[in-house]
């Protein structure tokens, strides 16, 4: 697996990935802070921590918009080199388990999401200090939101990966990502939100009192459930596939 991950990373060389790493979080943080300061009085109730309230805006913009689209691009990116250069047939004719190839691509995207989130965190805190957000920074709470956001991305990553493996072009997985992301914020307020992969990251990243989640136990059970279902489906689909 170590070699597979190394090679996946190698294939991304010279792909201008760093640009995405920057633009995505930058967009999320900018939109969040603009909205936060514009409606400062509305968000800030007595006793609220300004950092947490600002983070809520990050969760709102990053969660249902920027992050799913980034995931769509990342998964398409790790499959693109195979579609373009005829890599699938070479890769699958090597003495490697097909399931490991699938997991290798999955973990590579997870890694990309982790990097995105870390950059997001750094930008969030950095801009926060520059803009002079008041109150003490609850670094561990926000770090926890970030981790939860990453975990909640896993079903979405699997789903987008399954689509990207099927679709030969870059456009289709991206279009799917955008189309299904649009209603995310509406879906979030319905019971369906907890199993809708485009909504899950936002729900997980939001502070408890700001999200419509009633029971976190139920939410994480559903999250793990979606993940397992998609993982099994994705693996079966990939290993049993007959068109390479």
């Amino acid at each position: 697996m170590k070699n597979i991950l190394y090679v996946e990373q190698l294939k991304l060389k010279r792909s201008k990935l760093w640009l995405l790493y920057l633009i995505g979080p930058l967009l999320g943080v900018f939109l969040a802070y603009i909205n936060f300061f514009k409606n400062y009085d509305l968000f800030m109730q007595p006793g609220d921590n300004a950092w947490i309230e600002a983070w809520t805006q990050v969760a709102l913009f990053m969660g249902p918009f920027v992050l799913p689209i980034l995931v769509g691009i990342y998964t398409a990116l790790v499959c693109r080199s195979e579609h373009v250069g005829g890599g699938w047939k070479q890769l699958l004719a090597l003495p490697i388990k097909h399931s490991e190839i699938f997991l290798g691509k999955f973990l590579t995207v997870v890694k990309m999401v982790v990097i995105t989130m870390i950059i997001l965190l750094i930008l969030f805190i950095g801009f926060g200090f520059i803009k002079g957000v008041e109150g003490s920074l609850p670094i561990f709470t926000i770090f926890e939101f970030m981790i939860r956001g990453i975990l909640a991305c896993l079903p979405l990553i699997l789903l987008q990966l399954i689509i990207s493996i099927r679709a030969k072009t870059f456009g289709i997985p991206l279009a799917v990502s955008i189309v299904f992301t649009l209603p995310a914020i509406i879906v979030a307020s319905t019971p369906l939100g907890q199993i809708y992969p485009w909504t899950q990251p936002m729900l997980a990243m939001s502070p408890e009192d700001e999200s419509p989640i009633q029971s976190y136990l139920l939410f994480y059970t559903l999250l793990i459930g979606t993940f397992i279902v998609l993982l099994i489906y994705g693996l079966r689909n990939f290993t049993k596939r007959d068109t390479f």
Binding site: L10, G85, G86
Partner: peptide, 8 residues
């Protein structure tokens, strides 16, 4: 056709 990763 031979496989190649053009960016490598």
């Amino acid at each position: 056709s031979p496989t190649y990763y053009g960016n490598l």
